[in-house]
Write a protein that binds this DNA or RNA. Structure first.
Lengths: 194, 194
DNA sequence: GCTATGCTAGCACACTCGTGCTAATATGGA
DNA sequence: TCCATATTAGCACGAGTGTGCTAGCATAGC
């Protein structure tokens, strides 16, 4: 047998090259050639791992979500329910460079949906997961008596979900909101549910 | 003098062709050739009106915002303050096909920002206007005593703004929320400020 | 050492892109 | 009527696209 590469690691390296290209030049500038060059490979080698551009983009988008999910699961160990809730929600705000780039990539790839329908599917999956995540967070807080148990959990999850994504988008795009004000807004919002 | 066209009308017709292409094939598929064909023109004629693709996209984005702004201003005549507030906010939710397509176009063009920096500028301008709009709406309601006058207007405007854009995005992308549930959520949110 | 094979490099093809440019057309004013 | 010119049509160019394909390389197992 000839040389064997670590396929998973290679895929992740290429996906990270995709992220860099998206951040630097925008998703419209992502080409197989550029991504290969960014990853230090030839297009032939890249295509040995990702047969098509759609596969490449789909994997890149899924990897973002996997990384976020891993960090969220790490926060499940936080003891204090209130701190735990805020720590999890913070993973969906662009509070540092890593989270910011993850969100830029995610938004850019969602916008590319019409050209690669699989991306829409992946984005939708993430959207549904975040919604049920919001529901669970609120249910947990209600169980601990930290928010009013009378409120409509589904409606409040929808509101929290819209608030998170809207705030994240405004921080990404604009100059009016900062990561800190968004973070404070989310915390204040939860407090109003008490 | 030879034949004179109505430049404004021609520009609007072309911009509407851009919208249709974006809706049908995504913003990545927008090419000068396709837009010209969609508008029933040759590329030469189109370039007589829009010298570059950037100009074409910028005008198309601005026209969306102008149309929305015109409808918002029409709602200023609504007598009842509460009804007026809801009517204005409804213009930023994809409640019908027209508003839905306007928002799809707006979101798609924002995502194209890195390739055409002017689009980012235009999107930012709209974002700032909507923010001050939210502030004014809340100030108006507070003046009428319809919401608590104790609340921090700027913070509440930020929250309302995030809520609107987040809800709109979720309706556009997903299958979990409908235009109606988003509309109800916004109204319920305002009621909690009372 | 030899060979089978996973891997790499990169050319080729058919296409599309934005834009510069020219020639033809048609019409309002003199 | 005739001309100046706004408008139209569309070709041409160079660049860039995704993907198919082949030839070579380097190495693990025998």
């Amino acid at each position: 047998m000839p040389k064997l590469i670590d396929r998973d690691q290679r895929q992740q390296e290429i996906a990270e090259a995709v992220w860099r290209v998206i951040q630097r030049d925008g998703v419209g500038a992502v080409s197989v050639r550029d991504v290969a060059a960014e990853a230090g490979l030839s297009t032939g080698s890249l295509r040995h791992v990702f047969a098509s551009k759609t596969e490449l983009l789909a994997y890149s988008m899924r990897l973002v979500q996997e990384r976020v999910l891993a960090r969220v699961e790490a926060h499940l160990a936080v003891a204090d329910p209130w701190e735990r809730a805020l720590a999890i929600l913070d993973e969906f705000l662009p509070l540092d460079e890593r989270r910011r780039s993850e969100m830029e990539v995610n938004l850019a790839l969602i916008a590319e949906g019409p050209a690669h329908p699989m991306l829409t599917e992946i984005g939708l999956d993430a959207q549904r997961k975040l919604r049920t995540g919001c529901t669970r967070i609120l249910a947990g807080l209600a169980r601990e008596g930290l928010i009013a148990s009378t409120c409509d959990l589904d409606a409040e999850a929808m509101r929290l979900h819209a608030l998170i994504d809207g705030a994240a988008m405004h921080v990404l795009l604009g100059d009016t909101d900062t990561p800190q004000t968004a973070q404070r807004m989310i915390a204040d919002h939860l407090r109003t549910l008490a």
